[in-house]
């Protein structure tokens, strides 16, 4: 960063997505309520469930990702974000340590599928359509697949925590949360 130059008025480009998560973090994002009006003064949204844009522009500034990595598609999306975003943020418990989806890691995925797709008297038929992304042997947090720059814990992080985190980041400060805002649940 060039310290002598005044901050550009350019709005930052933000992309968001949910991988193996419940969209709760995105819902919590909306809990910043009317502050979203302040936020859109500072940022434009690129790929995101909010905009319904399907792919990242090549010059995104921030990528905010909810959820862990449970299948092949998650890996591809995460790679797309890492490739196109300068800063990648893991948002929420699932993105940070696998969260609830990772609780399947204590079981073998083959046993899980055999139990789920067993049909009484007709054996086990596990879907194998190429359209369906394959599950990974285990669910992983994001930072085990790509380099993650910042972590925003919580299940979900509160609207206030998200607001504090983003305003720190947009102002060029290393985000800190402090008591009351840092939560793992």
């Amino acid at each position: 960063m060039n310290a002598s130059a005044p901050p550009p008025k350019r709005k930052l480009l933000v992309a968001t997505t949910s991988l193996a998560g419940c969209f709760g973090c995105h819902m919590s994002f909306l809990d910043i309520d009317e502050r979203i009006l302040d936020l859109v003064e500072l940022v434009d949204f690129d790929r995101s469930p909010i905009t319904d844009i399907k792919h990242c522009s090549p010059n995104c500034d921030l990528g905010i990702i909810e959820g862990g990595v449970c299948n092949a598609e998650n890996v591809h999306v995460l790679h797309e974000f890492r490739k196109n975003c300068k800063i990648l943020i893991a948002m929420g418990a699932c993105a940070i340590n696998g969260g609830l989806p990772a609780q399947r890691n204590s079981l073998d995925i083959r046993d899980i599928l055999a139990a789920v797709y067993a049909q009484p008297g007709r054996g086990v038929h596990i879907p194998n359509d190429p359209e369906i992304p394959l599950l990974l042997n285990e669910v992983h947090p994001l930072h085990e697949v790509v380099k993650i720059d910042y972590f925003l814990p919580g299940c979900p992080p509160s609207g206030d925590a998200i607001w504090k985190f983003l305003t720190d980041l947009l102002a060029g400060r290393t985000p800190t949360l402090g008591h009351g805002l840092i939560h793992y649940d």
């Binding site: 995925i109 596990i126 190429p130 990974l136 042997n137």
Partner: peptide, 19 residues
Amino acid sequence: EPAFDLDSALSKMREVTGR
């Protein structure tokens, strides 16, 4: 580099789906 081998993380699913 990822903490684990991505391709072999699909091994069990390849096995059970035959894909």
